[in-house]
Amino acid sequence: MEAVPLDAFLAEMARCRADAEAMLAAAADGAAVERARVEFLGARNGRLKGIQKGLGTVEPAARRDAGRHFNDLKDWLTVAIAAAQDRVAAAPATAEAAIDVTLPGTPVPLGHLHPITQTIRRVQEIMSRLGFESVDGPEVEDQWHNFDALAISPEHPARDPLDNFFLQVARGNDPLLLRSQTSTVQIRVMERRRPPLRIVSLGRVYRPDTADATHYPMFHQVEGLLVEPGTTMAHLKTTLRLLASSFLGAGVRVRFRPAFFPFTEPSVEVDMEWGGRWVEMGGAGMVDPAVLTAVGLDPDAVSGFAFGLGVERIAARRHGVADIRDFYRNDVRFLRQF
């Protein structure tokens, strides 16, 4: 067989490329592009296949060069056909096949976390970064954990049977009640573990308030406790400032007003700056030495602070809930907004 000169081989490839360009440019739909693909890249009778067969007939000295040009053509064809396929796929074949993109999408189930849970989780997350571990305890409590260990004396009005939900059964001789604060958990932790301690206790608490827009006999508290040697009120204020500014926004400060709680001393009400004014967020204070003694700690060797926040109050303010009873109606039209 007579050797084919390189020029002639290159010319044939140039024709092939020009024909492919023209055919692809004219192809308006997938079928036309497919015809072009078969014409040029078809595995049996494609033109490239023919050219490949001709490669062996090129004069030996130029065969290497011809091979390189052949590969370039093959790559170009592959890319050009793929691009043409994408082009025709992107364009709707006909106007009838186009969809109304303003139609609703296929609904996927979307659940909702209760705003109270969202608020609790947010506080937990922030406090966790400050080293506070979330802990849990029983809701039905005894006198020791709900009152005595918290320095609430037997004659304190908070112990009045009318101000608590007492169970009709007792543990031995010890009356039981639904806990009136989550501080009970702090006592349980301090009894079990030695300082340093940083915990947040959270959950449901119960007080016999008549339900109205701002009261409910069951509500949620988040309480923080830190017990470490050398703790001062400055640590309390710093912690609450970090909580407030993380929760409500940078620059938010806290203010302490003197208050009275049996289990902390000094005791303060905590106000946070929210929406340009001071909003009462909860109570706080240094753990009363009597509480430390009650759980077997030496108040001269270790000190601590505690704070408690009313979750409903925070969530109500944050979300503009005017009636806190809405938190417990479980109306899905309410829940789905969160």
Binding site: L130, G131, R241, R255
Partner: peptide
């Protein structure tokens, strides 16, 4: 209590 500082260092602790 306005005089109580609110920017003292807090040590880091492990959290579970």
């Amino acid at each position: 209590y306005a005089h109580v500082p609110d920017e003292v260092p807090l040590s880091a602790r492990r959290v579970e």
